[in-house]
Amino acid sequence: MHSYQLAPGNWEVIQFTQEWDDEAGDHAADGETFAAGAARFIGSLSLHFEGLSVGDVVQVRMSESGGDAPEAVHPIHEVIGAPGGMYGFVSLVKRIGAGRSMRVRLLDQSKFDIEVASTVLTALTWKESCPMSSSSQLPEGGANLRTAEMYAKELARACSLMG
């Protein structure tokens, strides 16, 4: 990702400009989308901002689209300015419906432009064509008894065994 300036007051979609791996083909080169439905995903977003004043805030949120405009927005996470460069981390765990795509948007709430020095998104995505992708298929007790990592590993193993 190339660094860029983020102006205050408007939600801006992150443009991901470098791809390390995209076996599912859900991310176009220089694109905004990191997952397309119907699918489930788990991952993280690492952020590095320069010029964010102490106490100022950048809000981060995922949004689903069926086209260019957001159709559903998810909870907001906040990165709060501290002395020096600011680093933030956001967990990404969701389900996205068929025909929708997922993006990440930023809102600079300071009074000045800041530099988005880097964003790195890492995600594992499972298409819902796997019969184990429904939470109704979990053992009694549900996902709240398992960590997301354990569930993700079991789901990946089950889907790979099914072809």
Results as ranks from 00 to 15, higher is better:
141 G>Q: 06
118 S>G: 06
98 A>E: 09
110 S>T: 04
119 T>G: 10
90 V>N: 02
103 R>Y: 00
91 S>C: 05
133 S>M: 15
147 T>I: 07
124 L>P: 00
109 Q>V: 08
102 M>W: 01
104 V>N: 02
116 V>H: 01
145 L>K: 14
117 A>T: 03
131 P>D: 07
143 A>W: 10
120 V>M: 08
129 S>H: 09
101 S>E: 08
102 M>Y: 01
141 G>T: 10
101 S>Y: 00
117 A>R: 10
114 I>D: 00
135 S>T: 14
145 L>N: 10
124 L>W: 09
107 L>Q: 03
128 E>C: 14
96 I>T: 07
145 L>R: 13
94 K>L: 07
136 S>Y: 11
110 S>P: 02
118 S>A: 13
131 P>N: 06
118 S>Y: 10
121 L>E: 00
130 C>E: 05
148 A>S: 12
95 R>C: 04
95 R>P: 02
110 S>L: 03
143 A>Q: 09
94 K>V: 01
104 V>E: 01
148 A>H: 08
124 L>G: 03
136 S>L: 15
98 A>W: 00
104 V>L: 11
92 L>A: 07
118 S>D: 09
142 G>W: 12
105 R>K: 09
93 V>E: 05
91 S>D: 10
126 W>D: 01
109 Q>M: 14
133 S>E: 09
109 Q>I: 04
120 V>K: 10
119 T>L: 03
96 I>A: 02
109 Q>L: 15
136 S>M: 14
128 E>W: 03
99 G>Q: 02
135 S>D: 15
138 L>E: 11
129 S>C: 05
141 G>Y: 08
115 E>H: 02
117 A>Q: 10
124 L>N: 03
139 P>G: 14
99 G>R: 06
95 R>V: 10
121 L>Q: 04
135 S>Y: 10
117 A>H: 05
100 R>A: 05
132 M>K: 14
139 P>K: 11
123 A>T: 15
145 L>D: 04
146 R>K: 12
96 I>H: 00
146 R>Q: 12
122 T>I: 11
98 A>G: 08
112 F>L: 05
139 P>A: 15
137 Q>L: 13
134 S>L: 13
125 T>P: 00
93 V>W: 04
94 K>M: 08
148 A>I: 14
96 I>M: 03
128 E>S: 13
147 T>H: 05
97 G>I: 00
126 W>V: 15
101 S>K: 13
102 M>A: 15
121 L>W: 04
131 P>R: 08
97 G>C: 01
127 K>N: 10
147 T>A: 07
102 M>S: 13
143 A>E: 10
119 T>V: 15
90 V>L: 07
137 Q>G: 04
119 T>C: 14
107 L>Y: 12
118 S>L: 07
134 S>K: 12
116 V>A: 02
96 I>G: 01
105 R>S: 12
91 S>R: 13
130 C>H: 09
106 L>E: 01
147 T>E: 02
141 G>P: 03
140 E>I: 14
141 G>N: 08
108 D>Q: 09
125 T>Y: 02
148 A>M: 11
108 D>T: 05
108 D>V: 05
132 M>E: 12
115 E>C: 06
139 P>W: 11
145 L>H: 05
148 A>D: 08
111 K>Y: 00
146 R>D: 03
139 P>M: 13
90 V>S: 06
141 G>K: 10
116 V>E: 00
110 S>N: 02
91 S>V: 13
106 L>R: 06
103 R>S: 08
138 L>W: 13
101 S>N: 07
90 V>P: 03
127 K>M: 06
